[in-house]
Design a protein around this nucleic acid. Structure first.
Lengths: 155, 155
DNA sequence: AGTAATCCCGACAGATTCGGTCGGAATTCG
DNA sequence: CGAATTCCGACCGAATCTGTCGGGATTACT
């Protein structure tokens, strides 16, 4: 099971915006060139990010997109939720409204199976909860958290 | 991002086989009825499980499928890999051959992004590594690990 | 031997999603 | 005004998902 390229492209877009943070809006054409991604496709993705309040847009000439907040205030779980939808390995394990969605499970044997999806969902959420965009912006990764790269190599 | 119904149906199938473990082969028709799933579709799924060595088949009349080993010797990560393919949130984070697939990443900015996918992958793998089919077979869940259900409710 | 049950296997097919493309309208800056 | 840019909806080919169908191979039972 995998994320789609929406997730990948969108995160790369956010990283680029992170590097440019504080320098005013950047045009999509600029970012599409730098990341070698199709600009019209990025247009679609950035809409989701804008609707989620993660980036703000400036229309007209010299317009573009920029982060709505500083990178360390943008949790990666919010980015991926905006791009890929709710983080749920299975419908019966959505994490949006945390309470009272048990009735969606109708059969008995499946409850034990549900337990599996919930564990997976929680593992992903826990990982994403601990990360912000700042952890992925190159300068900060190199300066502040070099040990994270070491940790993740061979766990 | 989510697993497909292949994963769900396949796991439910395995749980059913877990409950019947030790009682000889069970026909797919039987399991399809009990889980209310389309039998021809289950046929496809069970092929993957058989090819992965997780279940063994007996042909002919009174034939069917049964677990290849006892439930506590079947790690859930093997079940999901057989059903859904490699557990990788993104192509650059496959976990099959653990060494030397860095060269697939060609751009520089993406390396920091790759770091994210690897963390997610590791989180899922770690969760799945700790679970076997025995954890999902109803009787054992109720008798041996009731506290797990408590733990996972509101983390 | 015959028959019923069952796995095995490949082909097909409708729906949905993925991964974009295209064209144009609206907005803003110079 | 004109150029740059976002905004937005429509469209589209390919792949995947979620099955269905038909028949062949194998075995147990009578």
């Amino acid at each position: 099971m995998s994320f789609s390229t929406k997730g990948e492209y969108g995160v790369r877009l956010m990283v680029q915006l992170g590097r440019r943070y504080g320098g005013g809006p950047s045009s999509l054409a600029e970012i599409a060139t730098e990341e070698d991604l199709p600009r019209p496709y990025l247009e679609q993705l950035v809409m989701s990010l804008r609707d989620a309040g993660l980036v703000i847009s400036t229309r007209g000439s010299h317009g573009g997109y920029e982060l709505a907040r500083s990178p360390d205030e943008i949790p990666m779980i919010a980015v991926l939720r905006a791009l890929e939808g709710p983080i749920a390995p299975m419908i019966c394990a959505t994490d949006d409204s945390e309470a009272a969605h048990e009735p969606t499970c109708d059969r008995t044997a499946r409850c034990t199976v549900n337990f599996l999806w919930i564990r997976i969902r929680d593992a992903i959420s826990a990982t994403l909860d601990g990360m912000t965009l700042a952890d992925l912006v190159p300068e900060r990764v190199a300066l502040i958290q070099p040990m994270n790269l070491q940790e993740s190599r061979q766990p």
